[in-house]
Design a binder for these strands. Structure first.
Lengths: 189, 189
DNA sequence: GTGTCATCTTGTCAACGGAAAGATAGGCTC
DNA sequence: GAGCCTATCTTTCCGTTGACAAGATGACAC
């Protein structure tokens, strides 16, 4: 379908985003080069400009895609807060390129319309997880505080894991380790 | 003392690091340019190479300095875990340039000797805070889990704060908000 | 005053991001 | 089916960057 032969690529926009994910996973977003992406897609170095304007435009699209994927992953994890926390970490590890760009607003245009909307969807998915906590908890009077604490702990664990700062004894399974950590914040009664 | 006149700068290494901190605080580490730093210090574009080798060398030095400053700040905060957590966030906000580089190992050389040593000092300061927790706590049997959870929650809060992802209702005082969040992880008995 | 060495300069190169202007393909109208 | 239109991609160019090489300068020891 997407014959890469001929003058027109067919699906260059998607090909560039996919290549960007690969490059970022290998070498981080700092080493990303539009010219390299164009080479990987088999087009000239100026072709990306038509789809994304500039580098920040490409990363804006990548970040927006990431927030949408995150919202999807959180909702798919079900209503249990513990499961959603694990899903958050799982998303960060499984989509590390998206995740790294999403929380680096200096790399893209945080006010872009598509991005604001996607971020909003992800934020809703985050907050709605906390609403499902049991009623009788000691901090039930402050669900926003619960949400902030939950987001902080899973986000912190995920970034520390990705940056390789965690000691080896934490293990090799991020899902299991994340579950233990989140459980410590919301112990069962 | 550091007369910038004449052939020799006097304290170019420090001047470059200070300029790097300023630039990163303004525009993030991605926009950092050795040539710009050299211009700000009033030297030629190749002068930085003598002190740091290359860009990664400069950022390695900056990260190492950051881990040392963090260890210092944590120890200065005293033995209380809550205070140390707040100090961690306070460091991230107050030294955002250092903090942003420290946890981006793709930007520098994580195996550099000076850096490994500094990171070790900061890690010790982190863990020794958890050791001071009261004995009778439910999770007292797993101090490593406590340390991981504490590190995750303060690190997550700090990075979310710095990335501007937190909603406005969290307020404008990171210290106060951090205290509330950490307190939720280690409530008093 | 001579040698030595760390420090800094000048000159150069390939790669990059971005802009401008032109080429091509495929679809649309009549 | 002829002409046109528009999105897509190419070619060319400019200023900037990181890195390297070779040379200039000054501080300091002896």
């Amino acid at each position: 379908m997407t014959g890469t032969r001929g003058y027109h690529h067919g699906d260059l926009r998607r090909a560039l985003l996919a290549a960007a994910v690969r490059v970022i996973e290998e070498t981080g977003p700092g080493a990303l080069s539009l010219r390299d992406l164009a080479r990987r897609a088999g087009v000239s170095h100026a072709a990306p400009a038509h789809h994304f304007g500039d580098k920040a435009g490409l990363l804006t699209a990548l970040a927006a895609e990431g927030f949408d994927l995150l919202a999807e992953a959180l909702l798919a994890a079900g209503g249990d807060l513990l499961d959603r926390g694990v899903a958050y970490v799982d998303f960060a590890v499984g989509h590390r390129a998206h995740f790294e760009v999403m929380f680096r607003p200096d790399l893209y245009r945080p006010e872009a319309e598509e991005l604001v909307a996607a971020r909003e969807r992800a934020g809703d998915a985050l907050r709605s997880g906390v609403a499902a906590l049991p009623e009788g908890r000691p901090t039930a009077e402050d669900p926003q505080g619960d949400a902030l604490a939950a987001w902080s702990i899973v986000h912190g664990f995920a970034t520390l894991w990705l940056s390789g700062a965690l000691p080896a004894r934490v293990g090799e399974d991020p899902r299991a380790a994340a579950r233990v950590v989140v459980h410590r914040l919301f112990p069962e009664p």
